[in-house]
Amino acid sequence: MKKLILALFLLMLGKLTLAQQTATDAVKQTVNNMFKAMRTGDSTLLRSTFAKGVVFHSVENRRDGSTALIAEDANEFIKAVGTPHKGIWDERIVITDVKIDGDLASVWAPYKFYLDDKFSHCGVDVFQLMKTAAGWKIIYIVDTRRKDNCVE
Rank of each mutant, 00 (worst) to 15 (best):
residue 2 K to G: 15
residue 2 K to I: 13
residue 5 I to M: 14
residue 9 F to N: 03
residue 10 L to H: 08
residue 15 K to G: 13
residue 15 K to H: 11
residue 15 K to L: 15
residue 18 L to E: 11
residue 20 Q to Y: 15
residue 24 T to C: 08
residue 26 A to R: 03
residue 27 V to W: 02
residue 28 K to N: 10
residue 28 K to W: 03
residue 29 Q to F: 07
residue 30 T to R: 00
residue 30 T to L: 02
residue 31 V to T: 03
residue 32 N to P: 06
residue 32 N to D: 14
residue 32 N to W: 06
residue 33 N to C: 11
residue 34 M to P: 01
residue 35 F to S: 02
residue 35 F to C: 02
residue 38 M to P: 03
residue 41 G to M: 11
residue 42 D to F: 01
residue 46 L to Y: 06
residue 47 R to G: 08
residue 48 S to E: 10
residue 51 A to F: 03
residue 52 K to F: 07
residue 53 G to V: 02
residue 53 G to H: 04
residue 55 V to G: 04
residue 56 F to P: 02
residue 58 S to Y: 09
residue 58 S to L: 11
residue 59 V to T: 15
residue 59 V to H: 09
residue 61 N to H: 14
residue 63 R to M: 09
residue 65 G to V: 03
residue 66 S to M: 05
residue 68 A to Y: 10
residue 70 I to T: 13
residue 70 I to N: 08
residue 71 A to F: 13
residue 72 E to K: 13
residue 72 E to H: 15
residue 72 E to F: 10
residue 76 E to I: 05
residue 80 A to Q: 12
residue 82 G to K: 04
residue 83 T to F: 04
residue 84 P to E: 03
residue 86 K to E: 13
residue 88 I to F: 05
residue 90 D to Q: 12
residue 91 E to M: 06
residue 92 R to I: 11
residue 92 R to T: 12
residue 94 V to Y: 09
residue 96 T to R: 05
residue 98 V to Y: 05
residue 99 K to H: 14
residue 102 G to N: 12
residue 103 D to I: 10
residue 104 L to S: 14
residue 104 L to N: 14
residue 107 V to L: 09
residue 110 P to H: 11
residue 112 K to L: 08
residue 113 F to I: 00
residue 113 F to R: 00
residue 119 F to D: 03
residue 120 S to V: 14
residue 121 H to I: 00
residue 122 C to L: 01
residue 122 C to S: 02
residue 124 V to D: 05
residue 126 V to N: 06
residue 126 V to R: 03
residue 128 Q to D: 06
residue 135 G to E: 07
residue 135 G to T: 08
residue 136 W to R: 02
residue 137 K to E: 04
residue 137 K to I: 05
residue 138 I to A: 06
residue 144 T to P: 01
residue 146 R to A: 05
residue 146 R to D: 04
residue 149 N to T: 10
residue 151 V to H: 08
residue 152 E to L: 12
